Computed example of a mutant assay.
Amino acid sequence: MTATFALPVPSSSGSLEQYIQIVNSVPLLSAEEENELANRLHAQNDLEAAKKLVLSHLRVVVSIARGYAGYGLPQADLIQEGNIGLMKAVKRFEPNRGVRLFSFAVHWIKAEIHEFILRNWRLVRVATTKPQRKLFFNLRSMKKSFAALTDSEARVIADDLGVKPEEVREMETRMSGQDVALLADDNDDEGFAPIDWLADSDHEPTRQLEKKAFDHLQTAGLEQALSSLDARSRRIIEARWLADDSGATLHELAAEFGVSAERIRQIEAKALTKMKAALSERAAIEA
């Protein structure tokens, strides 16, 4: 159903304000119209009826999504996730139960928005169990002020939501924590940032020994590998790979030795293979 007709979304409408104007301009349905469209959808798989049901309730998604503005996520993303929940509700809606689609859809809309927030809020999975999720989405509204919770307030909230007081305090701490920049402000010459307190692993003894061994292999090992080559092969490798400038081309070396460029390439490939074997053997001996 969702892939058959297109719904307006904030990005395609130009702006969030324009999108809200569009969805608010869609007329509401009466109970009779709603039941008729729902019956057509289920009896005949009428996708046009499904579209009308969805479009007439997009304003409901906008209203619900506004209640989650305090989580620092784009409002347009919250609305689009809520729209997914609305479409799921339309698909499952049964008018013969005597409930309006508005009331039925609220659960599905909130469920999709909740899942989106839990997946993306500060990239941290702050709530993993059902009681923790309930605590996560109700703690803001249950706090009476912006101040830290007292012991008695934490106990009251814990009793209401079926969790432990320490879980309430932990969730409060995690939700009230501010994001901290890893790097210092460019305008603050004397300021320190978290990166200044990170350990420099490059100066660990084991890293120093590894670096020393690598440098030795790069110098003494390379010289030994070069010495295993004949004069022509060594000249080609040094001219192609160890020159200070961009290095000689195959055609330049071909002209120097009076052979074809393909022959120079073959000599180079054979020499590199021989050098790699010599370096590996030396590394194994010194390990």
Rank of each mutant, 00 (worst) to 15 (best):
L229D: 02
E94R: 13
K134S: 01
L182G: 12
I84D: 01
E238C: 05
E252T: 08
K88G: 01
Q75D: 07
T129I: 10
F5W: 15
A6V: 13
S280D: 10
L250G: 02
L226F: 07
V61L: 09
E94G: 05
A38W: 04
G70N: 05
A65G: 13
G70T: 04
G70E: 05
N39H: 13
N45M: 02
G98T: 08
A69F: 14
P27Q: 04
K52I: 06
F5I: 10
R265L: 11
H216R: 03
L37W: 10
R140G: 00
S13L: 10
V61R: 00
R265S: 12
T2W: 15
M142Q: 13
Q21L: 12
D189L: 14
G85R: 02
I109E: 00
A278Y: 03
R40C: 09
I157S: 02
D200Q: 02
G177H: 09
R122F: 08
G98R: 10
V9L: 10
N138L: 12
P10A: 03
A184T: 08
D245H: 11
A193I: 09
E286I: 14
S260H: 07
N24I: 00
M275V: 04
E153H: 04
L198G: 03
I113R: 05
W241D: 13
R234C: 09
E81I: 03
